[in-house]
Amino acid sequence: MLNTERSPITGKRVQLMATCLCDAFYDDVAAATVEVLEHLGVTVVFPEGQTCCGQPAFNGGDWTASRRVVRHTVRTFAGEDPVVVPSGSCAAMMFHGAVLEFEKESDLPEVAALGRRTWELADFIVNGLGVKTWPGSYPATVAFHRACHTRGTASGEAALALLGSIAGLKLAQFGEGEQCCGFGGTFSVSFPNISSAMGDLKLEHMRAANPDVVVSGDMSCMMHLGGLAAKEGKPVKTLHLAQVLRDALKTAKA
């Protein structure tokens, strides 16, 4: 799912795709994303009309419904500026999924064009802006969960490079890191037993490494893993990569 034909970055203004999950549950993640980008000298524009990338219906198999939402997204994010999104999954939806479901549609070029300028946050920072290290400190052991929709993209490595460069931050190694957390969108509610068994296995591997916090570039995985752990009465602390970067920045500025 490599986003190969990406448009080059010109200028330092981006459009923020906050994601529906941040809009509904994780406002601090979206805020952290803004602060992290602004720290890098990037002007962040938030198109007010944005809703969702269309992925729930795409994965659920209702492509007619999904295309409706994608078309809205394409209109909302008009222009030439890069679109930055704090989610590998929504990014992959824009540059891969949407293209797949528009294969036979006449407006495929517009959809594909948006895909080419859509970036997952860590990928944008490291490969788009060329920022390879991060200031400040974050004294904690971090279990980084690489979300599945960043397979074959540069996002996982980018996030690890940034995290690894933060003073005091220790990356925990754990088993079967390449395995899915079990979220899977509609899968999580239509296959609740398998989905939660997968999540439990992931949590078991992570807990064995004794992390202070579980971090990911995707809140959907964190919502599932964190929710499972809380329901079982053994909560784990989950954060988005952007929150860790923002918190590290605070120490650098202090």
Partner: peptide, 26 residues
């Protein structure tokens, strides 16, 4: 998508029509 187009029932899968309507109107 083919299953949806052929109207095969899918237990546990939430319907997406109303959501799509909402998500395309700010």
């Amino acid at each position: 998508n083919r299953a949806k187009e052929e109207n095969v029932p899918s237990p546990g899968t939430p319907p997406m029509g109303a959501w799509a309507l909402m998500a395309s109107q700010p």
